[in-house]
């Protein structure tokens, strides 16, 4: 079975699982006395069943058209997944720092973390870009546009 076929089978089954979870969620939607004949559950049930059918069809079609095994490039796929998860971890770090100490420091941390993660050298220039970038963003969003940004739990009272 080649990588493409296996991806389609996995994807199809994942869609079926998502559909089942969604259908289970639909059973938890409360009934209202104001409800019409279709009701708040009507569309979710229809969508859940349809997605389960489509997911099964994608997996089934891939299974029927499976071909002989090919050399897999599994290592490459896992490396790509690790890179993606690393970048998501940078977002989590930003949220944590912003929640604690606010926008400007969190911005500098995010700029520094992502730059380094993406291969920028660990030198003064990178630190300078992160610091200056954070100040520019703060000026644009907070001072110029007057858009709400995180204040930080530790700084909120000060």
């Amino acid at each position: 079975m080649n990588a493409h076929t296996r991806r389609d089978i996995t994807g199809g089954l994942a869609l079926c699982a998502l559909a089942l979870a969604y259908l289970w969620g639909a059973t938890l939607i409360p009934q209202s006395t104001l409800s019409d004949e279709v009701g708040a559950r009507g569309l979710p049930f229809a969508l859940g069943f349809l997605l389960a059918l489509v997911g099964a069809a994608i997996a089934g079609k891939a299974w029927l058209s499976r071909t002989a095994a090919h050399r897999e490039e599994r290592g490459e796929g896992q490396a790509s997944l690790r890179r993606a998860l690393g970048l998501l971890a940078c977002i989590a770090l930003y949220v944590l720092v912003a929640w604690l100490v606010g926008y400007i420091i969190a911005s500098a941390v995010l700029l520094l973390a992502v730059s380094l993660y993406e291969g920028a050298p660990l030198n003064l220039r990178t630190f300078g870009v992160a610091g200056a970038g954070a100040i520019v963003f703060w000026l644009i969003f907070v001072k110029f546009l007057n858009v709400e940004q995180p204040i930080g739990k530790l700084l909120a009272g000060s």
């Binding site: 970048l87 930003y94 912003a98 926008y103 995010l110 973390a113 730059s115 380094l116 954070a134 995180p150």
Partner: peptide
Amino acid sequence: RAYLAAFVMLLVMSGVYSLNGSFLDIAIVA
């Protein structure tokens, strides 16, 4: 590219937070 990726990421995070002032929105976008 490394700096550009960092600035685009911060632009996205700042823009998303400004929608409702909620960290949950950032989690949803991620």
